[in-house]
């Protein structure tokens, strides 16, 4: 079996600091990796953001953990297709992305009257 199921552990998923994410994805893009998607989880007071990239069906995950409501750099400048998922995470988890090429202002899925981020266990106020 190649990479249809990947169990994430410390060995195959390096944890990065938010400021290194653009450099790291650019290195991987130059190696020929394709952007698959991003995932996010609520860890209580922090949000874990995972970047999934693949090349020849080999999946690579990068992990970034940030406190709730903070800003992390957007990777739109590296992978333009990340704009939709970054907007989704911004809406559902309240993580702000710096440098979005197309900002839906939190209205990709939700409406203005939604006050709290819906996918967090304890929602934080939406901007």
């Amino acid at each position: 079996m190649k990479d249809c199921v990947v169990v994430i552990n410390e060995e195959n998923t390096p944890e990065l600091t938010p400021d290194r994410i653009i450099t790291q994805t650019r290195i991987l893009k130059d190696e020929g990796f394709r952007f698959v998607t991003m995932s996010s989880t609520d860890l209580g007071d922090r949000i874990c953001v995972l970047y999934h990239l693949d090349k020849d069906l080999q999946l690579i995950n990068l992990k970034v953990e940030v406190p709730k409501g903070t800003k992390i750099p957007s990777i739109c400048s590296v992978y333009a297709s990340a704009v939709l998922i970054e907007n989704e995470i911004k809406e559902h988890f309240g993580v702000e992305f710096d440098g979005l090429s197309l900002d839906f202002q939190g209205m990709l899925y939700l409406d203005e009257e939604v006050q709290k981020t819906p996918f967090c266990k304890i929602g934080i106020n939406r901007v």
């Binding site: 249809c4 199921v5 990947v6 169990v7 994430i8 698959v36 998607t37 999946l59 995950n61």
Partner: peptide
């Protein structure tokens, strides 16, 4: 634990 699972749907890859 955490896991990423992928299959090929009629429309493409699903994760």
């Amino acid at each position: 634990g955490e896991v990423v699972s992928r299959v090929e749907q009629p429309r493409g890859e699903c994760l």
